[in-house]
Nucleic acid binder design. Structure first.
Lengths: 216, 216
DNA sequence: ATGCTATCGCAACACTTGTTGCGTTAAGCC
DNA sequence: GGCTTAACGCAACAAGTGTTGCGATAGCAT
């Protein structure tokens, strides 16, 4: 006979878009652009200074000078804040460096992954941890990774063009094989970071690719 | 001039061992073995029925009939509960199945990993999520994985003995390369589960191993 | 300038989580 | 049987987290 517990939510707005709001469009009474900037700045600085564990909606609100209620209304939870901060921080001009060989290209990508996963403070790890609790953070991460893997497909195409690996090689499978060991070791198994990881995973994957292991 | 915030903890006991307590040793006044069984049963059933998000110390306490305070004292948090439930559920007799080929052995292991990661309810995913917030859960997972990778080294040794792959192949690197793509796709990238993942990752890794990609 | 209104600030609340001191209970030992 | 003592139950508290209604305000339009 337990009460249904109505899972309360803010009824005011239909979950307002936390994404970049058009600044020139008609929004009478809106102060949102200024608020958003202050909040997102607070997220970044607080994350850098005190880490993920200390990141709460209240802490961000206090630091930004924006009221708790406003942050809860627009971002819902910490995951929403991180998601918005991520999408804003994305570099739209990013592309994988061209070293001339598949080994080299994969190694270059893996060095970036390695750097991101061992960065201090661990913002990437924080975002991934948050993605297990917040659908917003999970969605933001998925779209970020989808974009990066799409761009990295160029690496595979270049290798095919050089006749280094067979045509019909699946870019995604190859790229996941190359990068996944880094995430696994550094994030899940939590072994002490070894910079050779990046090169070893890149080399093993390139070897498998040359043998045609990523074609159907 | 902010107050140091003394990070309060229970002073009663020096963090009691949540592990299996010797039942025959002198523990005057202790009712611990019965309590532990009731609590761990509650963790399992509650996890199975309501999932990880609904798993809280209070929920487990209510269900088990054991008082909140007792659970907090002995297990500290949800991560501690999951860690204890995991170590109790571990099958000490597990060993990798011998199929006769490296491809087959890796495929068999990967099928188990795949099954664990796609199980409903997602207890493995729950444990991994918890490991980002609880040091106890993280430690339990690390030791579990360390044990499994040690046992799986037999796969690599068998392949070396069969002259399938070169001697000097690093078992751990090989095994991580084989399994990591599953964790990455199913847990992080969260693509819709594809059973072929297990076979593809196994085959690609075996190919790389035959080419000597996992030797120094 | 004046009005409109979405957004924000504010106070107050409810629920969850974690902690403490202290009295009570049950397991083991004589 | 009674004694000892770690483990437990209990009430009460403290802090963090999430929610609500309502009044105030800033940005835009006219």
């Amino acid at each position: 006979m337990a009460a249904p517990r109505p899972t309360r939510q803010f009824p005011d707005q239909p979950l307002p878009p936390p994404g970049p709001r058009a600044t020139t469009v008609s929004r009478p009474g809106g102060r949102s652009s200024s608020v958003r900037r202050r909040v997102l700045d607070a997220v970044r600085t607080h994350l850098a200074e005190h880490g993920y564990d200390a990141l709460s909606v209240d802490a961000v609100a206090d630091r930004s000078g924006v009221h708790r209620t406003t942050v809860y209304r627009r971002w819902r939870d910490v995951g929403g804040l991180l998601a918005d901060a991520l999408t804003e921080a994305i570099d739209d001009t990013w592309s994988p460096t061209d070293t001339g060989t598949l080994d080299g290209d994969l190694h270059a990508v893996n060095r970036e992954v390695y750097a991101a996963l061992t960065a201090e403070p661990p913002v990437t790890a924080a975002l991934i941890a948050a993605s297990f609790r917040s659908e917003q953070a999970a969605a933001a991460l998925r779209s970020f990774w989808a974009d990066r893997y799409d761009r990295c497909a160029a690496i595979v195409h270049r290798a095919v063009d050089r006749r280094e690996i067979p045509a019909g090689t699946d870019p995604r499978r190859l790229l996941v094989a190359a990068t996944a060991p880094l995430y696994h070791e550094l994030l899940l198994l939590r072994t002490l970071p070894d910079p050779r990881l990046a090169e070893q995973a890149a080399h093993a994957t390139a070897t498998a690719a040359r043998a045609g292991a990523f074609t159907d």
